[in-house]
């Protein structure tokens, strides 16, 4: 029983990381109507930026996290402005994408991966954060890193929720996500909001990267598997639905952890795909998806 609870806790904390990446993907999907296939690399670059800040500036973990999130958000805005904007605008409004955007996303992911390789090299770097002693609950010893991940992710989700629901910017973002033409007519600065949405999406990915850094190593190839798991999470929860992304992330994390614990660790990375394909076949709109936006 203890083993089971351990696995669930590990699954939940990894699931929180997937949920953050999935939130970014979902936010970008609902705001820009594109599926961003380079998001795994944004997560990787966020982790590297965090590691560099932590090592060279000598600041604490929390300032590192915040700074890395902001910097990666800026990187995301630049990528969107320089490359994706031309594609998303090609269809007239800010919605087109289709095959071109998918292919461009793959190209961008390879570019980012290799740029990171040129800067930081092929080695897996440790992210040594002094967490302190594990928390003991009953006879379970809970490592502090997991507590950190779950707490930080919950705080970030709470802040995102406040931003989207309680502020004017959040209102504008939701208007853009709902209908860009009407948002234009109501005086929303749609191009700016699109950049902002993409930046926030990338920032969430970076937060996930910085959070997972201390558990796993930080390395160039860490993006692809997280990308697919986050996609699985987003699809399971319902693409474009933010609560769905969180739910899906937790579900993927727990299933993967239980599968690795009870079935086989070798095929650990495939459980999320199996879940993804199952949900895509049975209910493409996902658990919480209101309507399936089929044409991305």
């Amino acid at each position: 029983m203890d083993y089971f609870i351990d696995l669930v806790i590990i699954g939940l904390s990894i699931g929180m990381v997937y949920a953050l990446v999935a939130l970014g993907i979902s936010l970008i999907f609902s705001g820009l109507d594109i599926v961003h296939f380079a998001h795994g690399e944004i997560y990787m670059i966020g982790a590297f930026i965090g590691l560099m800040l932590f090592r060279h500036l000598g600041i604490g973990y929390v300032p590192t996290l915040l700074l890395a999130v902001v910097l990666t958000g800026i990187v995301g805005v630049l990528i969107e402005r320089l490359f994706y904007r031309r594609l998303t605008r090609a269809g007239g409004g800010y919605t087109v994408a289709g095959m071109g955007m998918i292919i461009a996303g793959f190209g961008m992911s390879i570019v980012l991966q290799n740029v990171a390789y040129l800067i930081w090299g092929p080695k897996a770097l440790p992210f040594p954060v002094p967490y302190g002693r594990p928390v003991e609950i009953g006879n379970l010893a809970l490592p502090m890193s997991y507590v950190w991940i779950i707490a930080t992710a919950l705080i970030l989700m709470f802040v995102l929720n406040l931003l989207l629901k309680k502020t004017m910017i959040g209102l504008a973002i939701r208007a853009v996500a709902h209908n860009k033409d009407i948002a234009y007519l109501s005086g929303v600065n749609v191009p700016l909001m699109i950049s902002l949405i993409f930046g926030i999406g990338c920032a969430l990915g970076a937060a996930a990267g910085v959070l997972i850094g201390p558990i796993n190593y930080v390395q160039v190839l860490m993006g692809i598997s997280v990308l697919i798991k986050a996609f699985a999470a987003a699809v399971v929860g319902g693409f474009g639905s933010l609560p769905g992304a969180v739910l899906g992330g937790l579900l993927v994390g727990v299933i993967e952890s239980l599968g690795a614990g009870y079935v086989s660790g070798t095929y650990k990375d495939t459980y999320a795909f199996v879940l993804l394909i199952f949900v895509l076949m049975v209910k493409p709109s996902g658990i919480l998806g209101v309507e399936a936006k089929v044409k991305a």
Binding site: I34, V35, F37, A97, G98, M99, I102, I224, S225, I228, F231, A232, V235, F239, T266, Y267, D269, T270, A272, F273, V274, L276, I277, L280, M281, P284, V294, K295, A296
Partner: peptide
């Protein structure tokens, strides 16, 4: 091809990407 009955565009890309990675992982395992 079966997923393509119900899925289009990015969804299909996701499904096929997942299948492809699974095949590779199963082979190397």
């Amino acid at each position: 091809g079966i997923p393509s009955f119900r899925l289009e565009g990015a969804y299909l890309a996701l499904a096929t990407l997942g299948l492809a990675e699974s095949v590779r992982i199963v082979i190397s395992g």
